[in-house]
């Protein structure tokens, strides 16, 4: 019952760019939902501007980006920049899809992505990571 404090982890899962492969993002969405989180899904083909605006309106703690098309190095840095410009640098950004290790390291070290989950990641690892980040917030 919505009595005392009822805090929920809110996650915005987004598909930036033209990539339409959503098998992964839907599976992650379901796993996070089953872990008790509120998962907002953007739908496909979002521009960085639109998805950042939506993430702000939804006031999520976590922004998850799924990209399999190879456009990650163009799209993710732009999203990070927009978040900072909107004074929302505290949103935890995670990414997944087809992102080679070299690129993942750059995204984390230079652009402030919290973590890149590679192919074959166990969804429980993502759940645990999100919980840990949200507890620290």
């Amino acid at each position: 019952m919505r009595g005392a404090m009822d805090k929920k982890i809110r996650v915005f899962l987004a598909k930036p760019g033209l990539d339409g492969h959503d098998r992964g993002v839907l599976i992650v969405g379901q796993a996070l939902r089953d872990a008790g989180m509120e998962v907002i899904y953007s739908g496909l083909k979002q521009t960085p501007e639109n998805l950042v605006e939506a993430a702000l309106q939804e006031d999520v703690g976590i922004l998850g980006l799924s990209i399999l098309s190879g456009a990650h190095m163009a799209l993710i840095p732009r999203i990070m920049e927009l978040l900072r410009e909107s004074d929302a640098g505290d949103v935890t950004v995670i990414a997944g899809g087809v992102i080679p290790n070299d690129d993942a390291e750059v995204l984390v070290a230079e652009h402030g992505v919290a973590r890149v989950f590679g192919p074959g990641t166990d969804t429980r690892e993502i759940v645990a990571f999100i919980r840990e980040r949200e507890e620290r917030r």
Binding site: G17, L18, K45, T47, G70, A71, H72, L75
Partner: peptide
């Protein structure tokens, strides 16, 4: 590539970062 499949030229805003990637 994805812009071509979507009937977009390489200089379309949505094509940014997608040209020739897959």
């Amino acid at each position: 590539d994805l812009p071509t499949i979507h009937g977009l030229n390489s200089d379309h805003a949505l094509a940014h970062g997608e040209v020739g990637r897959d």
